[in-house]
Design a binder for these strands. Structure first.
Lengths: 220, 220
DNA sequence: GATTATTTTTAGACTAGCCTAAAAAATAAG
DNA sequence: CTTATTTTTTAGGCTAGTCTAAAAATAATC
């Protein structure tokens, strides 16, 4: 059994590992958890002893299979609880994060699976992040795209579904890069094209073909 | 903000105070929390400093108004979550206690009130214990009585609603005392009288008049 | 490639909560 | 009312997790 703190470290390493290519640096974990590098070193050693992370001094940390499984299951809990809070208890989707941070640490397989069923097996949380399945698989097919946004919703670009040179060129041209903020103004029913502005710039028109291949996360 | 441990101490003192007349002894708290008396003394001092318990050496502890309010709100959380687990997530009512012990410590007024509303303001938890309202009042009118049991259900006597000498005499005669276990065998539709056995003894007949004045807790 | 800057680790100290063992107080028994 | 028993408190030590400050290693710069 792990402490809540240990679980939070695993989660932090998992999150950071999505941004960094190889081992996750001590500092980035410290930043993620708002703690100090020396505390991180201590904990990394402990988790290494428990075979949840791979660690060599000065080399950063990576999760072992076991460590990753735990991290993903916590993320699964977190996102399911967020859905619960929004869909069942009428929370706003920007109010749920802190509560989900607490609820996610209640470890009961039965609880998680029953909650999942009760919510009718949601595919993503209210922020648009995918919910890992029972086996820890994160199905990228269920990503939220720009085409899923309604008028007046705002999203942040986190990836693309289409890798063709022409598409990427197009995105570059309109300055739609990773991390860009898109505000949808309105959507034309007829062809599902939308007018939207990028980083609060001028409004431009985006075809459905283009919007459905742009993976985004909802934001405020 | 209190730690989970501190909250658990307040809850334990509250529970013990229902059984003991004056100050709650160090030992009974230790027993309740499965810890040692010396640990209890430490914590009582700490809670006393925070003005949540009244404490004088060797005199036992009582909750202050503030401490009691916190204890009751935790119990409110606990019982609401138990209802949620049973009614919404299909848990059996004897499986929910440990999970509720964890969920109860998530302190968010909004969460509690929304959950209460979502569950349609239940009056008691699956064990038959009353759920304190938002203001911490525990409405004794909603006690579960023997008359509320179905055939084949089992209860433990925790009190009476009627204090008359004749009623108490009757109970004594049939050996229905505090803590006695009652198993309901069947209920006669016509006059709502029931046949039931006390502490697995012979089956006897109990009138509705008698059963509706006997406060019980459901048990296994 | 030597030097400076940054990152990471170590060393030592702190708090919360727990323990054991011994001392002190309260209670029970003779 | 003195002695024995039980309860409670104190004293000191342990672990988990945190911190600061200093040392060691790595990375960056000239």
């Amino acid at each position: 059994m792990l402490t809540i703190t240990e679980e939070n470290y695993l989660k932090a390493i998992f999150k950071s590992s999505l941004k960094e290519t190889d081992g996750v640096s001590t500092n980035s974990i410290a930043k993620e958890l708002e703690t100090k590098a020396s505390s991180v070193t201590d904990m990394i050693k402990k988790l290494s002893d428990k075979k949840l992370v791979n660690y060599k001094k000065y080399q950063g940390a990576t999760l072992t299979k076991q460590g990753k499984d735990i991290a993903v299951s916590i993320i699964r809990n977190h996102r399911l609880w967020e859905v619960f809070l929004v869909e069942k208890l009428n929370f706003k989707w920007d109010e749920v994060h802190d509560l989900a941070e607490e609820l996610e640490h209640i470890n009961s397989e039965k609880l998680t699976e029953q909650l999942d069923a009760f919510l009718e097996f949601p595919k993503h949380d209210p922020h648009g992040d995918p919910i890992p399945d029972k086996n820890g698989n994160i199905n990228r097919h269920n990503d939220i795209t720009l085409a899923d946004l309604q008028a007046n919703e705002i999203g942040t670009v986190v990836g693309v579904k289409e890798q063709s040179k022409s598409y990427l060129n197009y995105l570059e041209n309109i300055q739609l890069e990773l991390g860009a903020k898109i505000t949808v103004h309105n959507i034309v029913d007829f062809d599902r094209s939308m007018s939207a502005s990028i980083n609060n710039g001028n409004s431009i028109n985006i075809s459905h073909q283009a919007s459905k291949n742009l993976i985004i996360k909802k934001s405020k």
